[in-house]
Amino acid sequence: MQRVNMIMAESPGLITICLLGYLLSAECTVFLDHENANKILNRPKRYNSGKLEEFVQGNLERECMEEKCSFEEAREVFENTERTTEFWKQYVDGDQCESNPCLNGGSCKDDINSYECWCPFGFEGKNCELDVTCNIKNGRCEQFCKNSADNKVVCSCTEGYRLAENQKSCEPAVPFPCGRVSVSQTSKLTRAETVFPDVDYVNSTEAETILDNITQSTQSFNDFTRVVGGEDAKPGQFPWQVVLNGKVDAFCGGSIVNEKWIVTAAHCVETGVKITVVAGEHNIEETEHTEQKRNVIRIIPHHNYNAAINKYNHDIALLELDEPLVLNSYVTPICIADKEYTNIFLKFGSGYVSGWGRVFHKGRSALVLQYLRVPLVDRATCLRSTKFTIYNNMFCAGFHEGGRDSCQGDSGGPHVTEVEGTSFLTGIISWGEECAMKGKYGIYTKVSRYVNWIKEKTKLT
Score class of each variant (00 low, 15 high):
V4H: 11
V4T: 11
M6L: 13
A9P: 12
L19F: 12
G21Q: 05
Y22S: 10
L23Y: 07
C28W: 01
C28E: 03
V30Q: 15
F31R: 15
E35A: 12
A37F: 03
A37Y: 03
P44K: 04
G50I: 15
V56I: 13
N59V: 04
N59R: 15
L60N: 15
E66N: 08
K68D: 06
K68G: 10
S70Y: 11
E73V: 10
F78H: 15
F87E: 15
Q90I: 13
Y91Q: 15
D93N: 06
C97K: 01
P101V: 03
P101A: 02
C102G: 01
S107G: 04
D111A: 09
C119K: 01
N127V: 05
L130F: 10
I136R: 12
C141M: 00
E142K: 06
Q143W: 00
V154P: 03
S156N: 05
G160D: 07
Y161D: 01
Y161I: 00
R162S: 09
A164G: 10
Q167Y: 09
G179M: 01
V181G: 10
V183N: 11
V183G: 11
S184A: 12
L189Y: 11
T190M: 04
D198G: 12
E208L: 11
I210R: 10
N213R: 12
T215N: 10
Q219R: 08
Q219L: 07
V242F: 00
N245D: 06
G246E: 04
F251R: 09
G253H: 08
G254M: 00
E259W: 03
E259H: 06
E259M: 05
K260S: 02
I262N: 02
A265N: 03
I275P: 05
A279N: 01
I284Y: 08
V296W: 02
Y305H: 06
A307M: 11
K311Y: 05
Y312G: 04
D315F: 01
I316G: 01
A317F: 01
L321F: 01
P324W: 02
V326D: 13
S329L: 04
V331G: 01
T332R: 13
P333K: 04
E340W: 08
I344M: 12
V353L: 05
S354T: 14
H361P: 15
S365E: 15
L367Q: 14
V368S: 06
L369G: 06
Y371M: 15
Y371T: 15
R379S: 11
T381D: 12
L383M: 08
R384G: 11
F388R: 12
F388C: 06
I390R: 08
Y391V: 07
C396V: 02
G398H: 03
F399W: 14
G402L: 12
D405F: 13
D405R: 15
C407L: 08
Q408E: 15
G412A: 13
V416H: 05
V419L: 06
T422W: 01
S423C: 08
S423Y: 15
F424V: 00
L425K: 00
G427Q: 01
I428D: 01
E434T: 14
K438I: 06
K438S: 14
Y441I: 11
V447F: 00
V447S: 03
S448K: 01
K455N: 08
K457S: 11
K459C: 10
L460W: 12
T461F: 11
